[in-house]
Design a protein around this nucleic acid. Sequence first.
DNA 1: TTATAGATTGCCT
DNA 2: GGCAATCTATAAT
Length: 219
Amino acid sequence: MRDLGFDITRARTLSRQFYDRDPRRVARELLGKVLVRKHGRKLLAGRIVEVEAYMGVNDPAAHAAAGPTARNLVLFGPPGFAYVYLIYGNYYCLNVSCMAEGKAGCVLFRALEPVVGLAQMFAARGLSMPEREPRVTDLRLLTTGPGRLTQALGITRARDNGKDLTTFSDVTILDDGFLTGRVATTPRMGITKAADAKLRYLIARNPFVSGNSGVRIQK
DNA sequence: TTATAGATTGCCT
DNA sequence: GGCAATCTATAAT
């Protein structure tokens, strides 16, 4: 069966040092961790099942490739901070900065398995919660996809860009000891530059991974 | 100053 | 499978 719910008494916030490493390593190890949002007194949480690594100034697909700008400045700062940007004028994408100050690697969050606060997530996504027990096809609409997961958790640039994810103010990432099982790597989604690098990491056979969890569509 | 592409999603045929 | 929505960063005039 799927694992829903997590032991918050056992969960620990990931440290600054966790993020102070190669984004590929951070990406792989973020799988299975829990992304948590405190919304007033309400708690929203999802388990991380799909991420992508971006390698900084030497990665043509990365926002940092052009060097520091007003938008991407967080990436050049210290590790463990949220980089949130608007994509296609519609949705926000959430990243966490990696590597020491001055080096601009990051990890993009692409899909979560919803764990806590499902009703709130349905509302935030503009969907009605099913009367019956929600199925995987219903739940996938909440946090499968980078734009969906930020909307479900209420993450925006104005509110969250630059936030420290290593202290639990209202967004953080927890390790509750969950073991992922097999991890797969594929090319990153939706990019045209450096399109062959296998920098997308996902939990194999997890139903909340976006796309078809593997083969890239030819264009 | 204007044009275009983009780490997406949802609706249409 | 195709494509519009919507806005920002960057390239081109």
